[in-house]
Nucleic acid binder design. Structure first.
Length: 800
DNA sequence: GTAGGGTTAG
């Protein structure tokens, strides 16, 4: 059943009446028909009538011009306009408002100003039309000019014009101006001006002001209508004021607007946004007709609540009921698909989009990029992106984030730069996204530039941006900067606190992490799943076994969060480090969830430290199955055999690894100086400063040996004689990097080194000596955490 | 009256 049925009925009625009477009516009656026909869009029939009319007056001409203009047929409208014998202000206004309705800015204004030269006075309708155009297109300056004109022509006391002005200022984000004008006429109890003010507040995100204003409206006895209710309900949805919205619902029922389709769809939307899906469904069910707008709201409501499957099934119902699928339906549907990982459905919906001609819609393409990226199909996401001709900041951000989520951080940053070259300005969301890529790559230089962009842009900060700044600085080893951003924040959520907790833990200051956790609890913020990962991580890197046990216990007991494999991994890691391998084993057996790769990795690392070959073998074998292409367990196990002197077994594992086509990720360190990145591989001799670097290493080894350093040849893993082993150790990539750092970084500045793998035990010891002998702050970020070497000590407390 | 992209983890 379609809602336009009544409309069709009227049209047919008109048509038959007009035809059966052979157009032979009096002037007055003909004019009335002419008006009706053109109002219902039967412009060609209207023209036939117009041509047959023997007597045409001003009204006939004006109606016909307006009819053409309102149907967007401007060539005919213009022609008739020039033919009109007696042009009045109404004739001019008819054409002007047509141009306004269709958004023809240039034509509308030219005609509007030309009107004055011809000595025609614009009416309140002319001004309202032109102001409507300014609202629609956000033309503040032009709107202000019309406002000035209205003052000069004494229209500023006209409520009709003031209403348009309030609407214009509201839509142009000048709520204060709208308010001033509104207050001047508020006491006239004219419903439309109140509605315009409500809509203005709502449009600018002042949900609570909408509610206040609506209350005042009721106090003043101004009646609400089908235009007021949707506006107030939208605001309730925006500020999650379900209870107030529900009261408005009661008011709607009492005043008899409950059957209006606009009001009903606004109700569905309000309840869905307030996460009361049952009420939303109830309204939807009681609707007389299937209204796609309401269904769209319902689907979106499901998606936002994480009910992807339900959203998808509603969409399928829409489809089977032959409802109209539109440009509002599809983004939500694509969103639900993205969360469900159902590639087959993804492709069929994409086909539907192309078949139904939605392939060129910007928002739909943006949603497609996001959907494919989240499904891990970057190639398809890139294809959609490249085909788009009207990319905006959302299209770019979707792909930037897509790269990030799939681990291509460098590509994410490159694409962000390309976006800037394409003169697309990043917004806060784009900045938050690229900052997280900076954090992953620990490129602080670039991260600072993004931070500067944010400050210069005048966008103002937001919670996600600040959160990602905290993480970016923390991950780049600048925990002080991270803390400064955190302190500057006016509101903080669980993510802000967790970012800081994890940041401190990664920088070897786990005890501070625990203090921040206490502060967080004191402010009433509840920890989440990830907070506990951070906390346990902090404990495990500081050897705080008892605290960790207490946190682990409290997870489920106090906060109802079931520990995942991640939490078990931290606990096992900590037990392993504390030498309590038996207890670690016990915890492993107690696990409710199946141990994943992270758990086995933690156990394997513990076994390596405690030289527990048997358990290590078990962990490694589990990893061979869980992550067949990961070289780490092979290397670890082989190293464990080497350490135990079982060279045969070590070689066997290496051969196994080779036969399975797995290669070890080579150790690599890098440094950034003067915006250049210098990389070092183990025993690397390709560097332009190699001679200086290698003689510096000789000097370093000599000096630190004098200070007490003893090379730990356990970390040199070839079955050769001790002296050769020692030499291999000396040329590990991190040692090459630190030599380069000592040569190039000015005294007093920290030497920042990055390594792709965990730092080796011998290098760790050496770094401590170097920091003391050379009086340097060395910051080494390995794949696991930060090591701040100062005065012979490391921030990790030798746990890493 | 309805729509797209973002922040915390080992």
């Amino acid at each position: 059943m379609q809602k336009s049925r009544f409309l069709n009925f009227s049209r047919d009625y008109l048509h038959s009446v007009a035809k059966s009477n052979g157009f032979s009516y009096t002037r007055l009656e003909s004019n009335r028909f002419l008006n009706d026909l053109s109002k219902f869009g039967r412009i060609d029939d209207a023209r036939k009538l117009f041509d047959k009319m023997l007597e045409r007056d001003e009204f006939s001409w004006n109606t016909m011009v307006a009819g053409y203009a309102n149907s967007g047929r401007f060539n005919e409208a213009k022609k008739l306009f020039y033919e009109t014998p007696l042009k009045s202000s109404i004739t001019w206004t008819s054409l002007v408002s047509g141009y306004c309705k269709y958004g023809f800015e240039h034509e509308a204004f030219e005609l509007f100003w030309q009107m004055q030269f011809e000595g025609q006075r614009p009416s309140q309708y002319t001004l309202a039309s032109v102001l409507g155009l300014c609202s629609q297109k956000g033309l503040l300056q032009k709107g202000q000019r019309i406002h000035g004109y209205a003052i000069k022509t004494w229209f500023d006391g006209n409520v009709f014009v003031v209403t348009s002005l309030v609407d214009m200022y509201g839509k142009c984000e000048c709520v204060y101006d709208a308010e001033c004008l509104f207050q001047m006429v508020a006491d006239c109890k004219y419903n439309a001006v109140w509605t315009a003010m409500l809509t203005g507040y709502s449009h600018n995100g002042y949900g609570f002001k909408v509610i206040d204003c609506f209350r005042n409206m009721r106090v003043e006895g101004v009646e609400s209508n089908q235009f007021t209710f949707p506006s107030i309900l939208t605001a309730c949805g925006a500020v999650l004021a379900r209870d107030f919205g529900s009261q408005v619902h009661g008011c709607i029922v009492r005043t008899g607007f409950g059957a209006n389709i606009f009001v009903q769809s606004a109700l569905v939307d309000m309840y869905a946004k307030c996460r009361d899906l049952n009420s939303a469904k109830r309204v939807l069910k009681n609707m007389e007709f299937d209204d796609e707008v309401s269904w769209n709201s319902m689907i979106l409501g499901c998606v936002r609540q994480g009910l992807g499957e339900e959203a998808l099934s509603l969409f399928q119902k829409m489809h089977s009921r032959n409802m109209k699928i539109d440009e509002y339906t599809l983004p939500s549907v694509l969103n639900s698909i993205a969360s469900l990982k159902v590639m087959q459905t993804a492709i069929s919906v994409h086909c539907l989009i192309i078949k139904t001609g939605f392939g060129a819609y910007k928002l739909i393409n943006n949603a497609l990029i996001d959907m494919y990226a989240k499904q891990g199909k970057l190639d398809r996401a890139i294809m959609v992106f490249n085909k788009m001709v009207n990319k905006d900041v959302v299209s770019w951000t979707s792909l930037v984030t897509g790269y990030s989520h799939n681990g291509f951080y460098e590509e994410a940053i490159k694409l962000f730069c390309e976006m800037r070259i394409a003169a697309v300005y990043p917004d806060r969301i784009a900045l938050a996204s690229v900052l997280s890529a900076c954090a992953e790559l620990t490129v602080m230089d670039f991260g600072q530039q993004v931070h500067a962009t944010l400050v210069k842009s005048g966008l103002g900060s937001s919670l996600p941006v600040d959160n990602s700044l905290v993480t970016m600085y923390a991950k780049c080893g600048s925990i002080g900067d991270a803390n400064r951003v955190f302190d500057s924040m006016s509101t903080r959520d669980v993510i802000s606190w967790t970012s800081l907790i994890v940041g401190y833990a990664q920088n070897g200051r786990g005890k501070d992490s625990l203090q921040f956790y206490d502060q967080m609890i004191a402010t009433g913020t509840k920890p989440d799943f990830i907070t506990f990962i951070g906390l346990l991580f902090a404990c495990s890197h500081n050897g705080l076994l008892e605290s960790a046990r207490a946190y682990f216990e409290s997870m489920d007991k106090v906060y109802g969060i079931k520990p995942g494999p991640e939490h078990y991994a931290c606990m096992i890691d900590l037990l392993g480090r504390s030498g309590k391998l038996a207890e670690a084993k016990e915890l492993l057996n107690q696990m409710v969830v199946a141990p994943d790769a992270v758990v086995w990795k933690a156990l394997l690392a513990a076994c390596r430290v405690h030289k527990e070959l048997e358990l290590g073998e078990r962990a490694a074998k589990s990893l061979f199955e869980l992550e067949p292409m990961n070289s780490m367990p092979y290397v670890m196990l082989s190293n464990m055999y080497s350490t135990a002197g079982r060279w045969e077994d070590a070689a066997r594992i290496r051969r196994l690894m080779k036969s399975r086509g797995i290669s070890k990720e080579p150790g690599c360190s890098w440094m950034e100086t003067n915006s250049k990145v210098y990389t070092f591989m183990s025993e690397d001799r390709g560097h332009p400063m190699r001679t200086e670097i290698y003689s510096k290493i000789d000097e370093i080894i000599m000096l630190i040996k004098e200070a007490g350093y003893v090379p730990d040849v356990n970390f040199a893993l070839h079955d050769t004689d001790e002296e050769v082993k020692e030499l291999g150790l000396a040329y590990h990539s991190e040692k090459l990097a630190v030599a380069f750092g000592l040569l190039t970084v000015p005294q007093g500045a920290p030497i920042r080194i990055f390594k792709n793998l965990r730092v080796c035990g011998d290098c760790h010891t050496a770094m401590k000596y170097i920091s003391n002998v050379y009086v340097r702050h060395i910051i080494l970020r390995d794949s696991n955490c930060f090591h701040h070497f100062i005065e012979g000590k490391c921030s990790c407390g030798d746990y890493w």
